[in-house]
């Protein structure tokens, strides 16, 4: 009887830990979607923005 309850307790413990780990992963993923360092794709975007600056298509904003 004791061994059955031990198995059930362990199973619930493992399930709880897995749920916590999953939740942690999801929240971190959302944080990375919100703000992140520039990756390879973004670097191409920055290169295009650089070109726009170089050709004078965009100029620094000055508040009125």
């Amino acid at each position: 009887m004791n061994s059955v309850s031990d198995i059930i307790t362990s199973a619930f413990g493992i399930l709880l830990l897995a749920a916590v780990a999953y939740e942690l992963k999801q929240r971190r993923k959302r944080l990375r979607e919100l703000y992140n360092v520039l990756d390879a794709e973004d670097k191409q975007v920055v290169a295009d923005l650089d070109e726009m600056v170089k050709h004078g298509l965009i100029t620094p904003y000055t508040p009125h």
């Binding site: 979607e33 919100l34 992140n36 520039l38 973004d42 290169a47 923005l49």
Partner: peptide, 27 residues
């Protein structure tokens, strides 16, 4: 909002881009 880190570029050479972005549209 994309923030390009000019300091990172100065430290490692102009060919590399450093910085980060804030994707406010997902909020």
């Amino acid at each position: 909002l994309l923030a390009r880190d000019l300091h990172g570029s100065r430290m490692t050479g102009a060919t590399e881009y450093h910085g980060f972005h804030l994707n406010l549209g997902i909020m």
